[in-house]
Design a protein around this nucleic acid. Structure first.
Length: 827
DNA sequence: GCGGACTGCTTACCT
DNA sequence: ACAGGTAAGCAGTCCGCG
């Protein structure tokens, strides 16, 4: 039983950094102070400190990786750690050279963590003394034998092998008595809080209820503890005291709503700061003696959405997520009527949300909590930070730590960009920075016997084997300038290894060499299995993001576009030369995208030979990912159907599968899909084509005759991605006469506007359902549409286009199916 | 006045 | 504040067209 460091902060009253520590035996949070640590920053000019009060100036030698030399810098220490903020001034009137500082942007507690090697999320016996478990250490030593790079790898293995605690926690949800059609605004908090429900990990259900003067309790609600108040202020005070007992408080949108509302409501009652447990920082709500986790923020992080959960959810809402992960949604009560509910209904409704919120942290053996712990361990960020900051910040934090450990100077972002901010290639897409991945155009047809081979972790492998990092790309050495690849204009350092290359290389090796297989080991207990699955996913997140972050200038502390450009360029080179070699071996390459090749090659030995060539040439594992009975390629890229040997059907990029496509078309598409699924051999194709023609014809005829089950089957569903006021802005173009051209208002936004006229509210992120009609706007939101409004011709065009993607490979044509001759078209 | 070439905007998807 | 590449639909301009 240990203590786990979970967070860190700075106490300005005591001018001290402190750590928040979870004590496993008592399940309480402790604080560890370090009164001796002070913030500091570096400069090359003593004059820089003239206007800023530092208590001590010393000289330090730092290794400057950008210039590959060790330099002496002045280190100014601040008596009051907050004074470091004064180095970030912007003074236009500064009449001399602007003072230049390094490492003055780090938060004080983060600087402390990096300097002291504080192991976030890891077990400790007591302050400054990490817990050592002999079994885990032995396991770590044994595992380490599998790998060549030892230093970072050993630290990483420890992070993955020490167990993660199951933090004691409770979830909270509030209900506010709003007037009809008025959405309660947390910054105003003018409506009373009438119900607060809390669900604890052990299963306690607790309700705080404000009794209305005109409403009596009908019966005792289904809770374990019920606190009834007639005075709202008393309720808030009792609630604040109550929730601080929990080391972790979980909310869904507590940052944006619940906690913000409670705080501002408390201010309205004149409750003093010392009794309000919430601190606001930016758009986040932190608690002093509790860790507040807002799941809404966490699930919104793109890396979590796309890699950890494979993009299974699109919009982040409690209802969507709980249906997906808990197979249970919110209760079907109209949100506008909480005032009309009796107490039991109100509490049930509120409690359900609290339960779902907690449930999102417990499903799959606490997967979500484990993800947070694992991210925190690698990045060294406090758990609250990694649930609120995107993947670029996780990676940057890890690199900050490595810089401090190795006594590297942390460069200012502008230092990197001034030296190597320029890219050399031209992107295919207007507005993009550089040339990215390559896609091989497929030939239209239905080839049988297709193997899909993928370069395992192509970009991370490139980073590792080609030594890519901000310091090694276009390094300052004359003798490295010849070290170029694939006709790319950048050269790579031959003298030093990039930190990024070591780090991503270690993660890559650990995943490919151990955790990918180990997480599927049958001897693991369910909770071990869940933990290792989580580890594998988190490694994947760090690896996959590590290529893109370098191209996010302004968003990533080590931003350096040539790094991403070089990785993509070498990736192109590897896949291109592999395709070429396959061709030379007589293997037909049907299609390829970024790191994959689709090969028509029934001879397994030839595939193995190709794999060997890739391994020998590039040290990359060309994995056989999938085997298809046959595939349907139109000549479109990123668009195909593949029927696997086991009958599973992969559909990529096709309109019939896209989320915005009306059900009516999806139904026809799925019928065609099941025909294809049943095809075993090539000679069954003609028969299948006849069936497919019939499906196409029926879909067409039914539309023509205005036969559909329900108008909702014809609804398109589109996300409103921007604020409504951001549509229809000036474009980059002007007319010949010089007047500006404004962007057109898209159809789906016109539908939103029509809906808003009727009093519905729509905001960025919501999905609008609409049908195509013949009125002036050419659309109607589904709520306002009737069968007679439908513009059938538009739907026929859509059907034609959607089916084209599947009819092309089958060498069928819509006109022919409909019995049209070419002439008919013009009649 | 209308159709085609072209551009830009938007969404959804692929790796 | 990870990236670029592709498909598709829509709406607008510009130009030709006796």
């Amino acid at each position: 039983m240990s203590k786990y460091i979970v967070s860190a902060g700075y106490d300005k009253n005591q001018n001290s950094v402190f750590l928040k520590v979870y004590d496993e035996p008592t399940q309480k949070l402790e604080e560890w102070y370090d009164f001796n640590y002070r913030s500091y920053c570096l400069t090359d000019n003593l004059d820089s400190f003239r206007e800023i009060k530092v208590t001590e100036v010393t000289t330090v030698a730092k290794y400057d990786a950008l210039h590959d030399n060790t330099i002496d810098l002045y280190k100014g220490t601040f008596g009051n750690s907050l004074d470091i903020k004064k180095t970030s001034f912007k003074d236009e009137n500064f009449d001399e050279v602007m003072p230049k500082f390094w490492e003055n942007q780090l938060k004080i507690q983060m600087s402390y963590i990096y300097d002291k090697d504080t192991k976030m999320g890891m077990p400790y016996d007591y302050q400054d003394c990490p817990h050592i478990d002999n079994d885990v250490e032995a396991r770590t030593t044994k595992l380490l034998e599998l790998f060549t790079e030892k230093s970072i790898t050993k630290d990483l293995i420890r992070l993955f092998e020490y167990p993660a605690p199951n933090y004691k926690r409770a979830s909270l949800d509030i209900e506010v008595l709003n007037e009809e059609k008025k959405i309660p605004r947390p910054e105003v908090a003018n409506f009373p809080v009438i119900c607060v429900c809390i669900k604890t990990l052990e299963g306690r259900r607790i309700a705080f209820v404000l009794k209305q003067p005109n409403k009596e309790f009908e019966k005792y609600p289904d809770v374990d503890e019920l606190y009834i108040f007639t005075d709202e202020k008393d309720m808030l005070l009792a609630l604040f005291k109550f929730i601080q007992e929990f080391p972790f408080l979980i909310t869904f949108n507590g940052d944006g709503f619940d906690l913000m509302y409670l705080r501002n409501r408390a201010y309205r009652f004149g409750i003093q700061n010392e009794y309000i447990p919430f601190n606001i920082s930016g758009i986040s709500m932190y608690m002093r003696s509790t860790i507040h986790i807002d799941l809404y923020r966490f699930f919104q992080i793109n890396a979590i959405r796309n890699y950890a959960f494979q993009g299974k959810y699109k919009d982040v809402s409690l209802d969507v997520l709980s249906k997906l992960f808990l197979k249970q949604g919110k209760l079907n009560e109209d949100k506008h009527s909480v005032g009309d509910m009796d107490y039991c209904t109100l509490i049930n409704y509120c409690m359900r949300d609290a339960e779902l919120t907690l449930g999102l942290t417990t499903f799959d053996d606490n997967l979500v909590m484990n993800l947070m712990t694992a991210i925190s361990r690698i990045s060294r960020l406090p758990i609250e930070e990694c649930t609120r900051k995107a993947v670029g910040r996780w990676i940057a934090s890890f690199l900050f730590y490595q810089h401090r450990q190795l006594n590297y100077l942390i460069p200012n972002p502008s230092d990197i960009l001034e030296m190597k901010g320029h890219v050399a290639t031209k992107a295919m897409i207007k507005g993009k920075q550089y040339e990215g991945a390559m896609v091989i155009k497929p030939k239209s047809g239905t080839p049988f016997g297709v193997q899909d081979v993928d370069c395992g972790s192509l970009y991370p492998s490139v980073i590792k084997f080609y030594n890519i990092g901000y310091a090694t790309v276009n390094c300052p050495h004359e003798e490295c300038k010849s070290n170029t690849f694939a006709e790319l204009p950048h050269w790579i350092c031959k003298k030093h290894q990039a930190l990024e290359s070591i780090f991503i290389g270690s993660l890559r090796d650990l995943r490919l060499g151990w955790y990918k297989k180990h997480s599927k080991d049958k001897n693991l207990t369910p909770s071990e299995k869940s933990w290792y699955k989580c580890i594998e996913q988190v490694i994947k997140v760090f690896m996959n993001a590590s290529y893109g972050v370098f191209a996010t200038v302004g968003g990533f502390a080590f931003g350096c576009p040539p790094v991403s450009e070089e990785i993509a360029g070498i990736g192109r080179y590897i896949i291109q030369t592999t395709a070429k070699h396959a061709l030379e071996m007589g293997i037909l390459v049907l299609y390829g995208d970024t790191d994959s090749l689709f090969l028509k090659e029934p001879n397994k030995e030839k595939i193995i030979e190709l794999q060997k060539w890739v391994m020998d040439t590039y040290k990359i594992d060309l994995e056989l990912d999938k085997e298809y009975r046959f595939m349907c390629f139109s000549s479109r890229k990123k668009n195909y159907i593949g029927v696997q040997l086991n009958g599973d059907v992969d559909i990529k990029g096709m309109t019939g599968k896209k989320s915005h496509t009306p059900i009516y078309f999806k139904n026809s598409f799925n019928e065609i899909k099941s025909i294809l699924k049943n095809i075993q051999k090539e000679d069954e194709m003609p028969d299948a084509k006849i069936k497919i023609k019939k499906i196409a014809l029926k879909a067409y005829k039914d539309l023509k005759e205005r036969k559909w089950n329900n108008i909702e089957d014809l609804a398109f569903h589109m996300t409103v991605n921007k604020k409504l006021s951001d549509y229809g802005k000036k474009t980059s173009r002007t007319r010949k006469d010089g007047t500006p051209i404004y962007a057109a208002i898209p159809q789906h936004i016109r539908a939103v506007r029509l809906l808003e006229k009727e009093g519905y509210a729509m905001e960025a992120g919501s999905i609008i359902s609409f049908v195509k009609t013949r009125n002036e706007e050419k659309v109607l939101p589904i709520e306002l549409a009737h069968n007679q409004d439908i513009d059938v011709d538009k739907y026929i065009k859509f059907l034609d286009s959607m089916l084209g993607q599947i009819l092309d490979p089958l060498e069928l044509e819509m006109d022919e199916i409909l019995g049209h001759t070419k002439l008919d078209r013009f009649c």
